[in-house]
Design a protein around this nucleic acid. Structure first.
Length: 214
DNA sequence: CGCCTTTGACCAGCGC
DNA sequence: GCGCTGGTCAAAGGCG
């Protein structure tokens, strides 16, 4: 019983969102956002694809995480954001975004004495979730507070990638945000790790709703 | 004053 | 071994 499914919080009344979380040993999850039966957001297949559970969405406008710190849904504060999402060509989202990324090893600096175990640990690093949305804003409101710690121009991309870290102490969750060079309205967000706190720890008002909604 | 973003430098992994 | 690339660090500056 390894599967750990994220609970869905309704967001958009015109959207259907299916979300498949990952088990503790996977690199990342697999998330679909269904705006329309013919428009399904797809992601790179994770090493193991778990069954998705389509859930009708109604709106409250924020990205939720379950108690395990797993993202439930994408959301945007900007009303102009268009959550129509198109198919994501795997060529456009390399493994750097969505699957095994050998160079991404946030833990590598955690303990320099563990260098000899790098290859072992790499297989056990934090779970990651990647999804693609169409929006004018880069950073979605997921109820958590993020601090930008880096920006990097990546190869074959016209847009720089931004690196964010959860500002909560003892929480090492990170996320990366970048826009597709083919469509600068398409934003790829990759979460890495799990929050060890609720969004309410960071924001003390309306975020309560998103957390208690599941 | 504290928190944030920016940005160049540095480091480590990977492919050749 | 070397070069390329992505990820992180940390100093500097900005903003409320």
């Amino acid at each position: 019983m390894e599967e750990e499914r994220g609970l869905l919080t309704p967001i958009y009344d015109h959207l259907q969102i299916s979300f498949s979380a990952i088990n503790h040993h996977q690199e990342m999850g697999f998330v679909h956002f269904e705006d329309h039966p013919s428009q399904v957001l797809s992601f790179l297949p994770p090493p193991i694809i778990t069954a998705a559970k389509p859930t009708a969405a109604t709106n409250n406008g924020s990205l939720g995480f379950d108690q395990n710190g797993l993202p439930n849904i994408p959301s945007w504060n900007n009303n102009n954001n268009d959550l129509q999402v198109g198919a994501l060509d795997p060529k456009d989202v390399n493994d750097e975004n969505c699957s095994n990324d050998a160079s991404n090893s946030w833990w590598r600096s955690c303990n320099s004495l563990e260098k000899s175990k790098v290859k072992i640990r790499r297989k056990l690093r934090e779970p990651r979730f990647c999804f693609q949305t169409r929006s004018d804003v880069d950073v979605l409101d997921d109820g958590y507070k993020w601090r930008k710690y880096g920006q990097k121009v990546v190869k074959n991309s016209l847009h720089p990638r931004s690196y964010y870290r959860c500002t909560q102490s003892n929480c090492r969750v990170k996320k990366r945000v970048e826009r597709l060079s083919e469509d600068n309205r398409m934003v790829i967000t990759t979460y890495e790790g799990r929050h060890n706190h609720s969004p309410c720890d960071d924001t003390n008002s309306s975020d309560q709703d998103c957390f208690t909604s599941f």
